[in-house]
Nucleic acid binder design. Structure first.
Lengths: 134, 134
DNA sequence: ACGTCTGTATGCATCTTATATAACAAGAGC
DNA sequence: GCTCTTGTTATATAAGATGCATACAGACGT
């Protein structure tokens, strides 16, 4: 095997700032996916690859990947690997509505906690999506 | 006794994202100080005020304040209160911008993972913020 | 002196994080 | 079939984070 997914492996870093390791991994991966550094369907770095690269325990990486899966960002396939999730089919308009609501509130909370104007984040989202296609 | 320091107290929020509480408090305070919302010499919210406002243990707040002191951001005076240091650590000018970038990308990833158009979430954010004030 | 506000400190219980080790299970390729 | 890779699970251990309760100590205003 040599389909090397090292693109995001090199960017992975850990800071000793009190933030749990699995949170740092989870958030950095999430960002990589949002950026398009990792594209839908693409293989993610192996749990063991990440564990070795960051010198952390396999279970810690699993914790991070588990959260990403619960959020629908990735799909974990036993014995095959983990992959960036494809856009799931959304048929129920009501379901979509609620999801949007929740996502919006989450984003607002995150922005405020980060000392940032939510509207600014919203504008940036539109900007990025417009440029990258969405 | 009423020199109200509630300015930053209202802005304090806690997210259930795996980041330790004391880290969230520490970083939000650090930012408030760095961007001048809390000015040098000004009194900080009392540890107990923060504890009550966030419904968190006093020791947890103390942990956060302890780190702020070690970083030279604040000065703790027993029985008197805690105050913003005269020369608090400067904040990276690009900090806000980088944070926006991070938040935007994460939001995009979260939206797509939920099968939702990021732009739709962005619109809803603006809508909510406009109504609620922010 | 007294009461009240401030930070400081301790003990205990509980949950979470992280590591280390080890084994197990399923797909892919030879 | 065998082997390699991948994720999965389990156990033990240590350290850290959080809460709750309780107490202590110093400064200040009256």
């Amino acid at each position: 095997m040599h389909t090397d997914v090292q693109i995001p492996l090199d960017r992975l870093t850990l800071e000793a700032n009190g933030v749990p390791i699995y949170v740092q991994i989870r958030d950095q991966m999430l960002r990589a996916i949002g950026e398009g550094t990792l594209r839908p369907g693409e293989q993610m770095p192996t749990m063991r690859q990440v564990a070795v690269a960051l010198k952390v325990d396999l279970n810690t990486v699993r914790h991070a990947y588990g959260e990403l899966e619960r959020r629908g960002a990735i799909v974990i396939l036993r014995a095959k690997g983990t992959f960036v999730a494809e856009a799931p089919p959304r048929i129920d308009p009501n379901d979509t509505e609620m999801r949007v609501e929740e996502l919006a509130h989450r984003a607002i909370a995150a922005a405020r906690a980060g000392g940032v104007e939510p509207a600014q984040v919203a504008r940036r989202i539109v900007q990025i999506v417009k440029k990258t296609g969405g």
